[in-house]
Amino acid sequence: MNSFKKLTQQRYRLNWLQKKLVNGDMPQIQIAVMCTIGPSRFCAFLQEWRKKYPEVEIVLRNADRDKIGDMLLSGYVDCALVGGPLSNEPRFKYTELFREDMVVAFSPEHRFSRLNTVDLEQIMQEPYLDRLNCEFRDTFMTESARVGHEIQFAARSEREDWIQTLARGGLGVTILPVGSVIVEGLETRPIGAAALRRNVSLAAPFGREDTVHLRSLLSALRRFDWKSKA
């Protein structure tokens, strides 16, 4: 482990200790949520779980993929919702919760609104809004290069709300998970032929289930009927 990674984990550890001093013994579960995962399905889960444990506070930490591993290993968060495995770290246990399709998003006035599905080649011909944390970003770039299309980037951002708002306003199109749509009025269509999907999983370090409430939450996450909440 390099010195920078050690310093990062130490920083998260100090933040964790500060959190414990502030909150005392108040039941609290810290969950890192990968920034590309939408809230709708998890909201349905929390509504059901908190009926049994109303005294437990859930803290949701927004996180980029490359930071979640350190947050878990340092104890800064108890578990994480991720859109795929975190590198090759063997100390994490993964439980798949659900799968969701990737779709193309655009304004209601866009020509794609007249189509039932949109092919990748058609998307490549449009001004593109680049979601910098997108799990399929590299795949899209590679496929574009393979077929000889030079992508015209209209804007790039790590902010999901900004990219979706720009798409809704007609500045371009973007690819995103269907469950991550948060801007009202944003149109979406399935991506034809490519069948792009991602798995949303629960990640937790082995041996982390060290409190009654955390064990209950992790168990409930694994049993919940995620498909019915699509």
Rank of each mutant, 00 (worst) to 15 (best):
M1T: 09
T8P: 02
Q9G: 02
V22K: 09
G24L: 02
D25M: 04
D25G: 06
M26D: 06
P27C: 04
T36E: 08
T36R: 03
T36Y: 02
S40E: 11
R41L: 08
F42P: 03
P54C: 07
I58G: 00
I58F: 01
V59M: 06
A63M: 04
K67C: 05
K67W: 03
L73V: 10
S74P: 11
P85S: 05
E89M: 15
P90G: 09
K93L: 10
K93I: 11
Y94V: 01
E100V: 09
V103M: 00
S107F: 11
S107Q: 12
P108M: 09
H110R: 11
H110K: 12
L115K: 15
D119G: 15
I123R: 00
I123K: 00
I123P: 00
M124A: 13
E126S: 04
Y128N: 07
L129G: 02
L129Y: 01
L129R: 01
C134G: 10
F136P: 02
F136Y: 10
D138G: 06
D138E: 14
D138R: 13
E143N: 15
G148Q: 09
H149Q: 14
E150G: 13
I151R: 08
Q152E: 12
R156V: 04
W162Q: 14
W162R: 13
Q164R: 00
A167T: 04
L171T: 06
V173L: 05
V173T: 11
L176W: 07
V178N: 12
V178T: 13
G179C: 10
I182G: 08
I182W: 04
I182C: 12
V183T: 15
V183A: 11
G185H: 03
T188A: 03
P190I: 01
I191C: 13
G192R: 15
L196D: 01
R198D: 11
S201N: 06
S201Y: 02
P205S: 04
D210Y: 07
H213E: 15
S216T: 04
L217D: 02
S219M: 05
A220S: 14
F224L: 07
W226Q: 00
